[in-house]
């Protein structure tokens, strides 16, 4: 189902992940969140931006365990735990945050 944002159409897969990650822009993340009934805060953006940087460097979306550890290292222990990340992204930090970040679903995530 294509995603319509600012009068433009973006191709997504059946689960709503962006088909071409190069097309990503912040408005798309906002639109996906709105569709899920969520609103993106500064804290959400920290994680989304982190994921985009991780993908840029390693060409993969990290597994939840890896994400949690890396966020803890970068943003502090109070954020590097699954309770904090699941509160931000109740559908699963890796799954939902990756979708907003325009990344493919993390490898091994079903």
């Amino acid at each position: 189902m294509p995603l319509e944002v600012n009068g433009q159409s973006y191709e997504t897969d059946e689960e709503g992940y962006l088909a071409d990650l190069n097309q990503w822009q912040p408005d798309l993340a906002e639109a996906m969140a709105t569709a899920d009934g969520a609103e993106l805060s500064e804290n959400h953006w920290e994680v989304i931006n982190f994921l985009r940087e991780y993908y840029e460097e390693y060409q993969i979306a990290p597994a939840v365990r890896v994400l949690t550890k890396a966020i803890g290292k970068k943003l502090g222990k109070d954020k590097g735990n699954s309770k904090y990340l699941y509160e931000l992204f109740p559908y699963g930090p890796a799954k939902q945050a990756c979708k907003y970040a325009g990344l493919p679903k993390p490898t091994g995530c079903v």
């Binding site: 991780y54 460097e57 060409q59 990290p62 890896v66 550890k69 890396a70």
Partner: peptide, 14 residues
């Protein structure tokens, strides 16, 4: 093709 050689550097995180 996708350059997946960058991913080997992430193995430490795993």
């Amino acid at each position: 093709m996708k350059n997946f050689s960058k991913t080997y550097s992430a193995l430490g995180d795993y």
